[in-house]
């Protein structure tokens, strides 16, 4: 217990050093809380149409204005935040999970299994992202789950390669040999001995993947394969408003600013985590 405590406090001390990351963390927490709470508190529904109040600029009753169907933009941005953040988080976790499993198996067992899995990874990397996005997008019409799957298809390969590399270099180390000599199962060795050594890159990867997934979702919306109406996401709100950017600018401000803010803070957070988790890579000044 004591040892863990010191590890944690060391991590925290280093993390605190990265002021941008610290601020980012607070912004993200604040953002997540408002996205969860506000849709319950606000007196509007994200799908409630009011054609008499279309395109209202920001006001006291509608702080973010109203959209092309007279819906309150604040509640839509918040609800869209739930979707966008959920897409970001789930994609990050899911694609990292797939990547870790494939990378771990390939790196640990090596040989023909490694060869097959790495060719599979090459295969996924070789197909242009646009083909995967559009073809998959046109085959399964965009529900939130489908979008998550499609974006994940684009992102697992990098983690897989990373983890394989880590495992390749670790499995020859003495402590693995020792564990094997003691009769530990492969599964146990992977989970108990190897994986903890790869925790840092995995966590950093998850963080960065959140931001990346949110951006891909917005690009997907631009290409016409995003999340279906009336469910809002920051990406599809921004895309639907861009052609009236000059007439009704507030419709792009808020979802756009949210995307920028989230991706930005998530990246700073990742940067800070990297510094804190991989101390060998940072020079303390």
């Amino acid at each position: 217990m004591g040892k863990e405590y010191t590890l944690w406090s060391m991590f925290w001390r280093r993390f605190r050093h990265h002021r941008l990351a610290l601020v980012s963390l607070f912004i993200l927490i604040f953002l997540s809380l408002s996205v969860i709470i506000l849709p319950f508190v606000l007196p509007y529904d994200y799908a409630e149409i009011n054609l008499k109040e279309r395109f209202q600029p920001p006001s006291l009753s509608h702080p973010f204005g109203t959209d092309d169907l007279g819906r309150d933009q604040l509640v839509r941005v918040m609800y869209g935040g739930r979707i966008s953040l959920a897409v970001g988080l789930i994609v990050a976790l899911f694609s990292t999970l797939v990547g870790v499993v494939i990378g771990a198996i390939a790196g640990y067992f090596g040989g023909i299994l490694d060869n097959i899995l790495m060719r599979l990874t090459d295969f996924a990397l070789i197909i242009p992202a646009l083909v995967i996005l559009m073809v998959a997008g046109s085959i399964v019409a965009g529900g939130v789950l489908e979008i998550i799957l499609i974006i994940s298809l684009l992102m697992w390969m990098y983690v897989a390669r990373l983890i394989r590399g880590v495992f390749l270099s670790l499995k020859a180390k003495e402590f693995v040999e020792a564990a094997r000599a003691c009769g530990a199962s492969h599964f146990r060795i992977i989970v108990k001995h190897l994986l903890p050594n790869a925790v840092a890159p995995i966590i950093v990867n998850i963080t960065l993947a959140v931001g990346y997934a949110i951006l891909i979702e917005s690009a997907l919306s631009f290409l016409g394969f995003g999340i279906q109406p009336p469910i809002p996401s920051w990406g599809n709100m921004l895309q639907r408003a861009q052609h009236t950017m000059i007439l009704y600018p507030w419709l792009t401000w808020f979802p756009g600013a949210m995307i920028v803010l989230t991706v930005l803070t998530v990246n700073f957070l990742g940067d800070g985590l990297r510094d804190a988790l991989e101390p060998t890579k940072v020079v303390e000044v």
């Binding site: 997008g137 085959i139 279906q228």
Partner: peptide, 9 residues
């Protein structure tokens, strides 16, 4: 329930 796809499909 709304479910759309691109024009070609």
């Amino acid at each position: 329930e709304i479910k759309n796809t691109e024009a070609n499909t």
